[in-house]
Design a protein around this nucleic acid. Structure first.
Lengths: 119, 119
DNA sequence: ATAACATATGAGTAAAGACACATATGTGCG
DNA sequence: CGCACATATGTGTCTTTACTCATATGTTAT
């Protein structure tokens, strides 16, 4: 039981660590709109293939995504769409909270195109 | 405007990075209950002084906490209590979501003592 | 079977992060 | 002042992480 207690902080920290990379957030954000293939992720994020694959491995290992092969394509999808809502909540926090007052006006939700497009 | 857009993902990622360390989460969790001095944080978390100070610097630099000197003590408090709610939401996600089904039963909120105590 | 495409993996590198230890700064009291 | 306490900072180290490049695996069509 102490085991469980100790683990829980570590667990949450591990979750946040996964979310703490901008490129991974871009990938997650695209996945939040639709399940999609790796190719679509590459196009959607503007990141090189190996990098997308690299981050997808992290997401797979964390159990955050499911995969399904369809012909030559492998489709990824978020196991829990709730995650997107949580990201939205944090987005609000970042721009409307006591942090970064200078960017406090009208930011769109994390699913908007600007959120994940690379440049 | 493109500037802003690109930054935002980085901003959110930076926020998550701050939350991605277990010891920092412990500190934040204690702060979520009450504003308190560094000594109280050391006691509350069971972490060595220099380590607490080290992490507090991160939290200060990120603008996540405010400080106030009271005699020899320096009191820290979260700028936005909302953060605690967000942590609670993520806690729910971690244990009730599609992840870690084996720990899915009745986890307390991140403000409970077990959440931040070291061992 | 070979070619073309989709995706994953492995090695190497450079940078960031967490930490411990030693030391400095700041505050109040005798 | 000098001492005890509270907190911060600097340095060195070890680990982790993001990334690139090269290469491997898997799939489909010809």
């Amino acid at each position: 039981m102490d085991q469980v207690d100790i683990n829980s902080v570590e667990q949450i920290a591990r979750l946040f660590k996964i979310l703490s990379d901008p490129n991974r957030l871009r990938i997650i954000s695209v996945l939040g709109k639709n399940e999609c293939s790796v190719s679509e992720l590459i196009n959607g994020t503007g990141l090189p293939q190996t990098l997308v694959s690299f981050h997808l491995k992290t997401l797979r290992d964390s159990g955050m995504v499911d995969t399904e092969r369809k012909g030559p394509f492998i489709y990824y999808r978020l196991k829990s769409p709730v995650l997107i809502d949580l990201l939205g909540a944090f987005n609000q926090y970042t721009f409307n909270g006591q942090k970064n007052k200078d960017m406090a006006t009208g930011m769109p939700c994390p699913c908007s195109p600007w959120f994940f497009k690379k440049s």
